[in-house]
């Protein structure tokens, strides 16, 4: 299995008490599977991605990414795991303003120490894959919201990740563009055999995923089938 979370618990300090963000969360996502996670704001969706993406360490439970138990990894090894096996697509794309579309991808390769020629070849391939070859030299402010999000998707694939963690990618897009981006993510999951978690508020996208789960007060449960369009 590519992503396995077992009995994961995460708490944050909240004044004098601790707030439970994830409460005994268990989840398995197989290669080529895209799992949607919905839930109200503050329910723990982003915390789920943060733990799965090694951005934060769980208080309890185990997380395995592509067979690697992340619990005992130090900061440097977690950074390396993110570079090599995890791809992130952030809310509102989160592209760097000074970088062109192709540079957004090349940055990932530079961080990973990939050779320039290999990186350029792969960046070109990925921009072509998301239909943005013609926009490779454009900076974020010169791209539409949908284009920015597609660049972000391409960026997440630069490291050939085993796990793709997607945080509300359609929150700044209209329905049509949002559906196109989720469709792209589904295709990527199938083509590249990634284990993909898609956090979304929009129930219209649930039908494009393999499974839909819901977070409530830090607990993960099955989505009401009636909510899946």
């Amino acid at each position: 299995m590519t992503l396995t979370m077992t009995g994961v618990r995460l708490t944050y300090p909240d004044g004098e008490r601790r707030l439970t963000a994830l409460d005994d969360v268990s989840l398995t996502v197989a290669p080529g599977e895209i799992v949607a996670v919905t839930g109200p704001s503050g329910s723990g969706k982003s915390s789920l991605l943060a733990v799965a993406g090694t951005l934060v360490t769980a208080d309890a439970g185990t997380v395995e990414v592509d067979g690697v138990d992340v619990s005992g990894l130090d900061q440097k090894r977690r950074d390396r795991l993110r570079r090599e096996r995890i791809g992130f697509v952030f809310q509102q794309a989160n592209l760097l303003a000074s970088l062109t579309a192709v540079d957004q991808l090349l940055l990932v390769a530079h961080v990973a120490g990939t050779s320039r020629d290999t990186a350029r070849e792969r960046a070109t391939e990925l921009l072509d894959y998301v239909g943005l070859s013609a926009k490779r030299g454009k900076r974020p402010h010169e791209l539409s919201g949908g284009e920015r999000q597609r660049v972000a998707v391409a960026r997440s694939l630069m490291g050939s990740p085993a796990v793709l963690l997607v945080d509300e990618p359609t929150s700044a897009l209209d329905a049509e563009r949002g559906r196109a981006v989720v469709g792209l993510l589904r295709d990527i999951t199938r083509d590249r055999k990634t284990a993909t978690i898609l956090v979304t508020h929009d129930p219209r996208h649930l039908g494009l995923t393999d499974r839909a789960l819901v977070m409530r007060d830090g607990r993960l449960g099955a989505q009401d089938p009636a909510a899946v369009g």
Binding site: D79, R82, R83, F90, A97, L107, V111, G159
Partner: peptide, 16 residues
Amino acid sequence: SGDLAVVRAIGAGRGY
């Protein structure tokens, strides 16, 4: 700082 957070998230170390 927002950009830097993204770069850290994609795996860049503090030294980078």
